[in-house]
């Protein structure tokens, strides 16, 4: 009995000490993953995901408490990139990717209140008080922050029009492959 207890205790102690030493030696500082993920996020802090800014989301994704499909402006592209980063597979069927969108101001309704201008995370809305506002296409991320702010519903999200430069061959649809 004594031998059994002693030997097990000794064994446990030795292994425990060994692990303790190893833990010191192989300590890994911090989790660089969250930072790397944050670098991949749009960074506009638009808040459509329901979290406080892109860095919070990055942390949540790194911890696994948020899915990679959480970012609407990032869309499918970001989801696949994140999935590859994390080495997980992701079902993109759930991602509603309406394609790239941009905000558009209906000039006849705009009252020039400047609210959208202040809400835009990328300064894509230009204008001045009592002047009709306009959206700079290149800077708009389609996050939709401005849409809610507009008192006259003059701002809508529209898909980016397809041009010769943007057209993409459709994926072949094959009966035998369906």
């Amino acid at each position: 009995m004594l031998a059994a207890v002693t030997s097990l205790t000794a064994l446990g102690a030795i292994l425990g000490c060994g692990l303790g030493v190893a833990a010191r030696k192989f300590a890994v500082e911090g989790d660089p993953l969250a930072d790397e993920i944050e670098a991949m996020m749009p960074g506009s802090n638009c808040g459509q995901c329901g979290m406080a800014g892109c860095s919070a989301v990055a942390k949540a994704i790194a911890e696994g408490s948020a899915t990679v499909t959480i970012c609407p402006p990032g869309g499918k592209a970001l989801a696949t990139a994140l999935a590859a980063k994390l080495g997980i597979s992701v079902d993109l069927g759930d991602v509603v990717d309406s394609g790239p969108q941009i905000a558009q101001v209906k000039e006849e309704i705009c009252i020039g209140c400047c609210r959208c201008m202040k809400a835009c995370p990328t300064d894509a809305v230009v204008g001045a008080a009592k002047q009709i506002h306009n959206v700079i296409r290149e800077a708009c991320t389609g996050c939709g922050s401005c849409v809610e702010r507009c008192p006259t519903e003059a701002i809508t999200l529209r898909p980016v029009p397809v041009t010769l430069q943007h057209w993409v061959w459709p994926k072949p649809e094959i009966e035998a492959e369906a």
Partner: peptide, 16 residues
């Protein structure tokens, strides 16, 4: 393209 745009947007956001 969207990645480039996203980077540009990020820069804009930082600038803002």
């Amino acid at each position: 393209r969207s990645k480039l745009k996203m980077e540009a947007a990020k820069k804009l956001a930082v600038d803002r």
